[in-house]
Nucleic acid binder design. Structure first.
Lengths: 139, 139
DNA sequence: TAGCTAACGTTAGCTGGCTAATGAATTGCG
DNA sequence: CGCAATTCATTAGCCAGCTAACGTTAGCTA
């Protein structure tokens, strides 16, 4: 298990699971959280815009939006000026989730990074940035 | 993007994609690679054993095995002594993939970690271990 | 020895990624 | 002005995870 990539994969899976568990308590799944965070900052974006900001494909956002609509977190509305566009708007429930979900996320981040020394945290952050730039120079 | 968790997610997705691309050139998808690596070291394991070693659920291994069987990488064989067990055996093609896939994986790891300083590498590894232990104390 | 229980693989159905193909609407060019 | 090209969202279908439910086989116990 000395392989960095392997450790990485394992840590990621555990983080995803912990994250999903923390959010699910507030009716939000781990993928939906990302969409919500963008909408909390700027409501009424289109699937394409969200995909761009989240660096995810458009169908991924569309599918998430369908589930979130069914869950009552957002609504779909056709753009008045350009009928090709769909605008995603938060419902009251979607807005209400901001505080608890944000708190849950912060608590998880705190719990996970609490054990790290400042050096470890800084070096990890720097390493992650380098890895991202290596694999996606455009970013 | 200052959030460690966000950087983590992004880096993981890029790594997965790069990994999948590298392996696909040799007819192996990213999830199958993990199964193969265990079988290269020890052939004839059961789905449950593989799931335990990979820290993945049994259905995940079963589904991967089905695709790998269709791809001609492994075969399923019922255990003679205990008919509940299924043993997964490498085919010639599965064995033949070891060298190229291993090389591709090593090349990716090398490329990704090349930019990191020894301190970053060590600190990241240590940080990952701590995170894993925090989220899964049993490990 | 008969029957219950535990172990194991598989199937069904979910989330969350992806690409490719489709269809509707707008834009732009001739 | 009209038609072609572009730009959207959606749908279809794939891989890779998961949990829960199911059926079969061993094994143990009464």
């Amino acid at each position: 298990m000395t392989d960095l990539l392997r450790l990485f994969t394992r840590a990621h899976k555990l983080l995803q699971a912990a994250s999903d568990e923390a959010m699910s308590a507030h009716g939000v799944r781990v993928g939906q959280n990302l969409v919500l965070e963008v909408l909390w900052a700027e409501d009424g974006l289109t699937p394409g815009e969200l995909a761009g900001r989240l660096k995810v494909s458009t169908p991924t956002v569309v599918n998430a939006a369908t589930r979130m609509e069914a869950a009552g977190l957002i609504t779909r509305r056709r753009d008045d000026a350009d009928a090709r566009l769909v605008r995603l708007h938060l419902t009251d429930a979607g807005r209400a989730a901001e505080k608890p979900v944000g708190a849950a996320r912060a608590a998880l981040a705190q719990r996970v990074t609490a054990e790290l020394t400042p050096e470890e945290r800084a070096a990890t952050e720097s390493a992650l940035r380098k890895i991202i730039r290596t694999l996606d120079p455009e970013s």
